[in-house]
Computed example of a mutant assay.
Amino acid sequence: MRVGFFINPRAGYGVILNRKGSDSLPDIDPNLSTSVTVGKKFLNGVRDLGIHFLVPSGIMGSEELDALGIKDYEVTSFPGKNTDASDTVSFIRSLKKMEPQLIIFCGGDGTARDILSAGTGNVPVLGVPAGIKMESSVFAISLQHAIFITREITVSGTVETVVGEVVDIPESDLDTLHPSPKFYGELTTPNSQDMVSSPKLDFYQGNREGIVDYVIETMDPSINYIIGPGSTCKSIIARLGKETGLLGFDLVKAGEVLESDISEQRIYELADKGSCKLVLSPVGGQNFLLGRGNKQISSRVIKALDFQNVIVVSAPEKLTYTKRLYIDLDTSASITIPRYIRVITGYGMFKIVELEG
C-alpha cells in the first residue's frame, strides 16, 4: 500500500510556551517537538505492515524513517529548514501524481486546514492527533487508535470512507474571552469507530447553577483548585466575580481567583506540592476528558495529582449519548486510568461514566 505520510513539527509546540495554538510560532527546537515524538511512535507501530511511504525530506518525514531504520519510502517534496504551512501544501500537491491510497499526518486543526487548501481529491486522510487544537472530525481518537485504523486498512487492502469536517479556531481569536471554531470545509476520511465522530458541538447547557453551587460550596479553603476551560467551568469563575478566557486554566483558592491562564509548568508545580484538585468538563460532541482542548494537563500533571483529585463537571445534556469519556495523554509519565469516573451533573447529582485511554 502506498501511503502519503508527514509530520508538522510545529504542531503541539505551543504548549511549551503556554500558547493555545502553534500556527504562528517563530523558529522551533525540533528536539522538543511533541508531534515528532508522536510521529515516531506511529511509524514504529506500523513498520511491519509493508507500507511504501511517500514523505517529505527532513524533519517532516524522511529523518524519522531513517532514525527507525525504515527503508521503504520515497521523498516527494523538499521543505525548508524552518517548515511552515507552504511546505504542507507543497507536499500534498506532490502526492497527486503518486496516487497514494491513504494520507496520514501528525498535526492539529491548522495542519488539516493546510491539507484542505492543497486539495486531496478523494484520497482519504487520517489525522494522528499531535496538535493543540484538534476539533475536526479527521482525527483518530488517539495515537493507538490511529495505528489500529492503519493496520486494519492495510490488512484489508481497502478503505471505507466518510466525509469529515475541518474546523479550527483562528489564532487571532484564541485569547479572546469567547473563541469558537469555524467550519472550513470537508475531507474524505476512513469510516471507523476509532475516528473522532464529530467536531465540537454547541450543546444547550441547561441550568448550570446547580453544578456551580455544589462545586463552590464543597470547596476546601485550604486546597488549590485548578479550574479548566469550557463554559461550564468558566461559570464557576464567573460566580467568583471574574471573567477569564474560555480556553485557559485558572487557579482558585479560598473563594478567590488568584491566577489566570496558567501554564502546564505552573499546574505541575501546584500539583506536585499536593493539596490540589483539578476541575474539568468533557469536550462536547467528541467525548474527550483529557487530550483535547486542555493540553496544559500532561501525564506528569495527572501522575502528581492522581485521578482521585480530578473533579469532572458536565451539564446532563452533554452526557445524554455519551457511553464513555476518552483520555489521550502523552506517555512520558506512567499513569493508571480508572475504569470509571464520577461526573457532577447538578447540585448533589452525579453520573458514573466509563473512561477509555
Results as ranks from 00 to 15, higher is better:
residue 14 G to R: 11
residue 340 Y to H: 13
residue 136 S to G: 03
residue 175 D to M: 07
residue 137 S to H: 11
residue 186 E to S: 11
residue 303 K to E: 08
residue 150 T to G: 05
residue 170 P to N: 07
residue 242 K to W: 12
residue 189 T to A: 12
residue 303 K to G: 00
residue 277 K to V: 03
residue 134 M to H: 05
residue 55 V to I: 12
residue 115 I to A: 03
residue 13 Y to C: 00
residue 122 N to D: 12
residue 297 I to D: 06
residue 64 E to M: 15
residue 68 L to T: 10
residue 83 T to E: 01
residue 114 D to R: 08
residue 71 K to M: 02
residue 109 D to L: 01
residue 6 F to E: 00
residue 244 T to Q: 12
residue 62 S to Y: 11
residue 167 V to A: 05
residue 247 L to R: 04
residue 182 K to A: 09
residue 210 G to N: 08
residue 77 S to W: 10
residue 180 S to F: 15
residue 29 D to C: 06
residue 65 L to Q: 07
residue 203 F to A: 08
residue 244 T to K: 15
residue 292 R to A: 00
residue 306 D to A: 00
residue 295 K to G: 09
residue 23 D to G: 05
residue 341 I to M: 13
residue 201 L to E: 15
residue 216 I to T: 09
residue 217 E to S: 14
residue 32 L to H: 07
residue 164 G to I: 03
residue 80 G to K: 15
residue 284 G to Q: 08
residue 15 V to G: 13
residue 270 L to R: 05
residue 5 F to T: 04
residue 350 F to S: 02
residue 85 A to R: 11
residue 233 C to V: 12
residue 321 Y to C: 00
residue 329 L to T: 04
residue 54 L to G: 01
residue 10 R to I: 06
residue 163 V to F: 14
residue 354 E to D: 08
residue 118 A to V: 03
residue 179 P to I: 06
residue 113 R to S: 04
residue 46 V to D: 07
residue 283 V to C: 06
residue 339 R to E: 15
residue 171 E to A: 01
residue 69 G to D: 06
residue 19 R to T: 03
residue 98 M to K: 15
residue 27 D to H: 13
residue 114 D to S: 13
residue 287 N to H: 15
residue 151 R to K: 15
residue 76 T to D: 04
residue 187 L to N: 09
residue 100 P to M: 03
residue 30 P to E: 08
residue 139 F to Q: 02
residue 268 Y to C: 01
residue 110 G to D: 01
residue 299 S to Q: 01
residue 166 V to I: 10
residue 14 G to E: 02
residue 65 L to N: 05
residue 188 T to M: 13
residue 70 I to F: 13
residue 178 H to K: 14
residue 1 M to V: 14
residue 39 G to Q: 00
residue 87 D to N: 11
